[in-house]
């Protein structure tokens, strides 16, 4: 299958790539830069790819590697091996309130450690199966499952906490802590 032209590839993938970048890079400007850089790399190297079916995974893999190369020093990998972990059925059903929006989802994702955040974002973008996520991130499929299980529990906890407050709206603050990388 022939690789489509540049504009068609951009139209098909730039929005999900930007959303993935936003969950990784934390600010809109950095996410836009990361997305742009990924397409620049495609424009200069993508002609080497002959299989159109691999364009999407090439773009997501490249964006993730670019992010890692820029932020490697900031990453903190947990010591525990999660591969053998199994999920517990939660005691109570979890519901995501109607008041939660896309920005709240990204804000919650950004509070989660990067090792969970990347597979979790790819899972919710629904562009890849768990095996394809493993290929994009360069980790075993079992590890993707473990990280999804743990990451989903963390994300829902954050979203449920968030839906119980109106703190994301601009309201007078008594003495809010100075925080970087996310609003309350």
């Amino acid at each position: 299958m022939a690789v489509p032209d540049f504009e068609k590839i951009v139209d098909a993938h730039y929005e999900p790539l930007y959303r993935f970048a936003l969950s990784l890079a934390r600010t809109e400007h950095a996410a836009a830069d990361l997305t742009q850089q990924t397409f620049f790399l495609w424009a200069s190297r993508g002609h080497q790819l002959r299989d159109a079916a691999k364009v999407k995974s090439w773009l997501f893999t490249t964006l993730y590697r670019e992010f890692l190369s820029l932020h490697r020093r900031d990453l903190r990998f947990p010591q525990a091996d999660l591969d053998g972990e199994t999920a517990e059925l939660p005691a109570e059903p979890c519901s995501i309130a109607d008041s939660i929006d896309g920005a709240a989802v990204v804000a919650a994702l950004q509070q989660i450690d990067e090792v969970y955040r990347a597979p979790l974002t790819l899972f919710y973008l629904e562009e890849f199966s768990y095996r394809e996520i493993a290929d994009v991130l360069g980790i075993p499929a079992g590890t993707v499952m473990s990280r999804l299980s743990r990451g989903k529990a963390m994300l829902r906890k954050l979203l449920l906490e968030d839906s119980g407050t109106a703190a994301r709206k601009i309201v007078p603050m008594e003495q809010p802590p100075f925080s970087k990388g996310g609003a309350q």
């Binding site: 540049f6 504009e7 951009v10 139209d11 730039y14 929005e15 999900p16 930007y18 959303r19 936003l22 809109e28 836009a32 997305t35 742009q36 397409f39 620049f40 495609w42 424009a43 200069s44 979890c94 519901s95 995501i96 939660i100 929006d101 896309g102 920005a103 709240a104 989802v105 990204v106 994702l109 974002t121 919710y124 973008l125 629904e126 989903k152 994300l155 829902r156 979203l159």
Partner: peptide
């Protein structure tokens, strides 16, 4: 819950000028 989270994540718009910037950059790259 996953359906709700996925829908909200995918509703986030990209910056209005991002597509044009990518296309312009791609032409020169």
């Amino acid at each position: 819950a996953d359906t709700a989270i996925a829908a909200r994540l995918k509703s986030l718009p990209a910056p209005a000028d991002l597509r044009a910037r990518i296309l312009t950059g791609g032409r020169v790259s």
